[in-house]
Write a protein that binds this DNA or RNA. Structure first.
Lengths: 145, 145
DNA sequence: ATCCTATAGATAACCATTCTTGAAAAAGTC
DNA sequence: GACTTTTTCAAGAATGGTTATCTATAGGAT
């Protein structure tokens, strides 16, 4: 599974943004790309450390923030849960299971011109609007009533 | 300005839920009802303390959680900001100013059958879907470019 | 009034995240 | 290639909103 941005493009993206592509930052990005779900910083840290043992948790946080800033990853927040990171930077929505904490993509749902509606109904200069969706995943549904 | 739930109804709501309506909890609710904006727990604490000096911050947190549980108030979360509380429990959306941290209602915007769309596109049992909207308020817009 | 349970207050603990610090590495210079 | 400057790193301390703990107290039922 290959991300939207290829290897050389990654290096180029770092250069253009004035950041250097260090081995730690690469380990963080690759850990994120190989992860199935939408890991937390702690989970990324564990995965990155297995690739490059010279990575500290603080470095992972900093790397994640750089990666987000240059647009290679996205951070998503649900209440009662640490920030989750996502290599899919295409516009989409995710749902989080309130029982097992899994996060999954919801395909085919688009905020569409909702943003326009919002803009029309507030004098604010709207900079961001995102959906926070929670529910119970199929596995947890079958586990009990 | 009178909330959706009147005084007697408040007492009744507490009783039915198995909670007692203490003076502290009343102070918290009234502080929230008289507040203009959408205060944080800390702000509610300050306002409640002016009504009833025998209120501790921890009690305010507990009272807010009880009030939310019995449906008298709503909690809303934005990242980079503490939880904000709202006496308006009717379905509506709020926008937060990223500069001055003010929160305001957005009238006339309804998620409508968006929830239905979401339900159709995920096997999850969707329990909540809410919009997190941020922007810059008119006052802050005029303050600088 | 008395007993019993829920609640309050004060303070310590929590936990994800950020900051700080000195050291190491990288980049730029001659 | 050695030297200087700048950036980055790792480890751990600090932060801040929130929650838990523990003892004392207050309300409601009998």
């Amino acid at each position: 599974m290959v991300g939207a941005v290829e290897r050389d493009e990654v290096r180029e993206r770092f250069r253009r943004s004035g950041y250097t592509l260090t081995s730690q930052r690469r380990a963080v990005l690759e850990a994120l790309r190989d992860s199935e779900g939408h890991p937390s910083a702690e989970e990324v840290y564990l995965a990155a450390k297995s690739r490059n043992p010279k990575v500290a948790l603080g470095t992972v946080y900093q790397a994640l923030s750089v990666l987000e800033e240059i647009g290679l990853i996205e951070a998503k927040r649900w209440s009662e849960s640490p920030v989750r990171y996502d290599v899919n930077t295409e516009p989409h929505h995710d749902i989080r299971c309130t029982r097992c904490d899994a996060v999954e993509e919801i395909p085919g749902v688009d905020l569409g011109d909702f943003a326009a509606h919002i803009r029309e109904n507030t004098p604010y200069d709207v900079t961001s609007a995102s959906l926070v969706i929670e529910g119970v995943c199929p596995a947890c549904q079958t586990q009990d009533g």
